[in-house]
Nucleic acid binder design. Structure first.
Length: 841
RNA sequence: GCCGAAGUGGCGGAAUUGGCAGACGCGCUAGGUUCAGGACCUAGUGGCCUUCGGGCCUUGCGGGUUCAAGUCCCGCCUUCGGCACCA
């Protein structure tokens, strides 16, 4: 008899043994086929792991452990994405240097990760803030610069006052910062940009070959936003001309006015004196409005006539030129031809300002809407009349090109990637500015450009990084000629370090390259990448871009970094608010009576909604408490048992009992507890029903493992354990296979029982069991007998019985006979192994 | 507004190509066991009806195809996610 199952004791012991034996180390010299299983590495925040991490990393851990047991040489590394805003914000809030805060938080994270029993190869741990690491981030930047993909420009940027920095388009959501939700305004500033647009087509096309969730690919496609159309040049008298971009060149005959963005450079020059004051006022008003305000009233159309007229190149018509803020300077050419008959926005504008409307595509019979944006035959369009839209487009583009007033063109929603930040905690640029205003990239041997210590690392708010105040760091010389120069004081954004970290894991200590050709070829691409959907258009797009650049430079051998991507669902949890003022309540301060939540202190009802866990909603569950109470194995198992990996999951701790009981049951069966002897085992071969149960389980669990259907895999292990519990003596073979299959999910329990039953080595590294096809069959089969679609009886018959025998027994069943009595049998068939179909009239 | 995903017992969720809806677990009910238990064991558990043989209903709603529909087709509703004046 053994003692009770005490998870904490067992788990820490096995964690130490795995570590001492370096059980999960990925060996470069191992000749077996490789499997690279990667997590999106975390920002080590001060709060430690949350349940989202636990879910993410448990899924990948099971993938990695299963792959090991299937004989793969597995690379499953972990590291820290520690530069950037979250780390810096935390440091400012807690009055510590970011470096110290990162070191401390990394310690917390790592201890928690090890406590979960995740099988990382810690010998490859990396940290993006380590100079040995960011040296190579800077080096890759130099490569981008050499290729002409990094450049400086005065551009309207997203300036966030509260964060004291500019942000990338991807970091701005609804006019607010992705982090913190602070207001963001447009403001022109001189900034570094990366030409991701040059890769737009490849980023789009290569999505097809990736094994990613389709909705995620769709998000990237939409973000890139490729649209095909044409540029059309309009002239204004003899002096000016401007170009518009349109996806509907076929509707050019219906262009009854043009609209320029208020920021369009031509606006000032073409405005007539009579319209001057109105135009100036509108332009000023627009520039004061934030992006957010501009988006807030999409419904109402505003605009001002410039007094100028443009010549429609297709028919010479003089059409008025307006300015309006629904035309964006940052997209296309910042100018449009307005076709109210074929575009609802233009229709609304035309109605508001009483401008003419001409239909150029015949709407379908009975159409009583406004603009018709669909297919149809061209009308009122001269040489296009009668053509369907696609043909009309082609014909118009040919005409425009022939006349030299337009051409086919593709535009993208994707903009170049704004790559500089006015913050302290990021990679410095390997760039110096010379006195003559030019700048120079530093040579590779000058790297790393270390981040200096500063007195204050808080944002200055002036648009300059805190680094600008570090005189002796800023003042330097251009190594090319020794002339005085100033260092670039912007830093790289958070995403820089994570753009290539997956490559560094393959070769973490290389001092002469970011990753050697050999290691790249050995380990890349990542076979399974597990992480949240929140990175769909940020990290995942940026990393693909860098990877393609590295590919073009011949530095990596694959076009894409992440072959298969798995998105875990979100963990949702009820949050509680007072009904009075909506302030959030901690879960401990709420009690549930008859399914209704009440505020404990006041006894008044509380308002509850289910949403994503977040600190501000006070609905965060701390994994440490669950581990303390039930152990890591139970938490791992429960996380997976709640539902499929990609589904959102409602956190409800009442279900934990189920998986905890399952582990206890396994424990008692194999080693017993303080009251019960373990179940006797036998080395005799498994036979009969037990054999069938065993092989069905192996077959089913294996299938589920391949499909990442871990919730059903666990349920099949439960079925197997229940079957073992029904036996007086358990065949050793069953215990063996059970433990091997338990190992990826509850590795500590598996190890403990593995060693308690005198098995050699680690269960975590034991081969995956195989099943015998013949054992999946049973001697008898059960058939449901349907009469006119309803089950009227069941019969058990020897397997492989001929159809005739089955049908004969089926019609002989008492209840079946009753239902067919006095009627004509019009159809009878047997669905092998399942049912008998009888149709009567 | 546009695009995408999803709606199955009291709850989380299962269901190859259309083939016995509700696996597994939680919860609940009854019994056993225990000094005790938020422990363990056994049995039951979608709803309604029942002469205890069985019958009828049931996968968001309404139609349809089929011997047979959670699964396929048509039309709606709801929820979640993404995009949001992108020309």
């Amino acid at each position: 008899m053994a003692g009770a199952y005490i998870p904490n004791e067992i788990e820490t012991r096995w964690q130490q043994r795995w570590e001492a034996a370096e059980a999960f180390r990925a060996d470069d010299a191992d000749p077996r086929p490789k499997k690279y299983v990667l997590d999106m590495f975390p920002y080590p925040s001060g709060d430690g792991l949350h349940l989202g991490h636990v879910e993410n990393y448990t899924i990948s851990d099971v993938v990695a452990r299963y792959a090991r047991q299937r004989g793969f040489n597995v690379l499953h590394p972990m590291g820290w994405d520690a530069f950037g805003l979250p780390a810096e914000q935390y440091a400012i809030e807690n009055q510590v240097h970011p470096r110290d805060a990162v070191a401390r938080n990394v310690g917390i994270f790592k201890a928690q990760m090890q406590r979960m029993g995740w099988s990382y190869d810690w010998s490859r741990e990396i940290n993006t803030t380590d100079p040995d690491y960011y040296k190579w981030t800077q080096w890759i930047f130099l490569k981008l610069h050499e290729k002409g993909l990094a450049f400086m420009a005065e551009v309207p940027v997203n300036w966030c006052e509260a964060l004291g920095t500019v942000l990338a388009n991807e970091e701005v959501i609804d006019g607010k910062s992705e982090r913190g939700g602070h207001p963001v305004v447009r403001k022109p500033m001189r900034q570094w940009l990366l030409k991701i647009t040059e890769y737009a087509d490849r980023l789009l096309e290569d999505l097809d070959g990736l094994d990613w969730p389709s909705h995620l690919k769709q998000m990237q496609r939409e973000w890139i936003g490729r649209s095909e159309g044409a540029d059309v040049t309009f002239t204004i008298g003899d002096e000016h001309e401007f170009t518009v971009f349109t996806t509907r060149p076929d509707t050019l005959f219906g262009a009854t006015f043009c609209v320029l963005a208020p920021e369009h450079p031509l606006v000032d020059g073409i405005t007539t004196d009579a319209q001057r004051s109105g135009v100036d006022e509108y332009v000023a008003k627009t520039s004061r409005r934030s992006e957010r305000d501009r988006m807030a009233d999409v419904k109402t159309k505003s605009g001002v006539f410039t007094g100028a007229f443009a010549t429609n190149p297709v028919n010479g018509a003089q059409i008025p030129i307006w300015i309006a803020d629904y035309v964006l300077m940052g997209y296309g050419t910042g100018a449009i031809m307005a076709v109210p008959g074929g575009d609802q926005r233009d229709w609304e504008f035309a109605e508001t300002f009483d401008l003419p409307i001409i239909r150029t595509v015949a709407p379908p019979e009975g159409f009583d809407g406004q603009a018709w944006e669909g297919e149809g035959a061209a009308i009122n369009s001269g040489f296009l009349d009668g053509m369907q839209v696609p043909e009309a487009k082609r014909t118009m583009i040919e005409w425009l090109e022939e006349k030299g007033v337009g051409s086919a063109r593709v535009t993208y929603r994707l903009r170049d990637w704004l790559f500089s930040r006015q913050r302290y905690w990021g990679e410095p640029f390997p760039i110096v500015h010379r006195e003559d205003g030019s700048y120079a990239a530093l040579p590779a041997d000058a790297l790393p450009i270390r981040l200096p210590d500063v007195a204050s690392y808080k944002p200055t708010g002036t648009g300059e990084s805190p680094l600008a105040a570090v005189e002796d760091w800023v003042r330097t010389t251009d190594p090319a000629d020794g002339a005085p120069a100033l260092r670039e004081t912007n830093t790289m954004p958070q995403w820089a370090g994570s753009c290539w970290y997956y490559l560094r894991f393959a070769d973490p200590f290389n001092t002469s390259a970011f990753c050697s050709k050999e290691r790249d070829e050995q380990w890349l691409p990542v076979d399974v990448y597990v992480g949240g959907v929140e990175h769909a258009v940020l990290h995942l797009l940026y990393a693909r871009f860098w990877h393609k650049v590295l590919f073009d430079l011949g530095l990596v051998h694959t076009q894409e970094p992440f072959q298969r991507l798995v998105n875990q669902g979100m963990i949702l949890c009820p949050s509680y608010q007072t009904e009075e003022n909506g302030s959030y309540l901690r879960i401990e301060d709420v009690e549930i009576r008859d399914g209704t939540p009440y505020v404990k202190a006041t006894g008044r009802p509380a308002y509850s909604i289910v949403q994503k866990m977040s600190k501000s909603k006070k609905n965060v569950i701390n994994p440490d408490e669950i581990i303390r109470e039930f152990g890591a194995d139970t938490l791992r198992l429960y996380m997976l048992f709640m539902g499929p990996p990609d589904a959102d999951k409602l956190w409800d701790r009442s279900g934990i009992q189920g998986v905890y009981r399952f582990l206890n049951k396994a424990w008692r069966l194999v080693v017993g507890d303080d009251r019960r002897e373990p179940r006797p085992r036998t080395s005799d071969a498994t036979s009969g029903a037990a054999r069938h149960a065993l092989h069905t389980a192996i077959h089913g669990v294996t299938q589920d493992m391949e499909a990442l259907a871990y919730n059903t895999a666990i349920s099949k292990l439960m079925v197997l354990l229940n079957a073992m519990g029904d036996l007086d003596t358990i065949p050793e073979e069953m215990v063996d296979a059970f433990l091997r299959m338990l190992a990826p999910f509850a590795p500590h329990m598996a190890e403990e029982l593995w060693s308690a039953t005198d098995r050699e080595g680690f269960a975590s590294l034991a081969d995956w069991p195989t099943y015998d096809e013949s054992a999946l069959k049973t001697d008898t089969e059960e058939y449901a007998v349907q009469v006119n679609g309803k089950v009227r009886g069941k019969l058990v018959i020897a397997a492989e019985s001929p159809d005739e025998a089955i049908l004969a027994e089926a019609v002989a069943l008492a209840n079946v006979a009753e239902h067919i009595a006095g009627k004509t049998l019009v159809k009878q068939m047997v669905v092998r192994g399942r049912l008998v179909v009888l149709v009567v009239k």
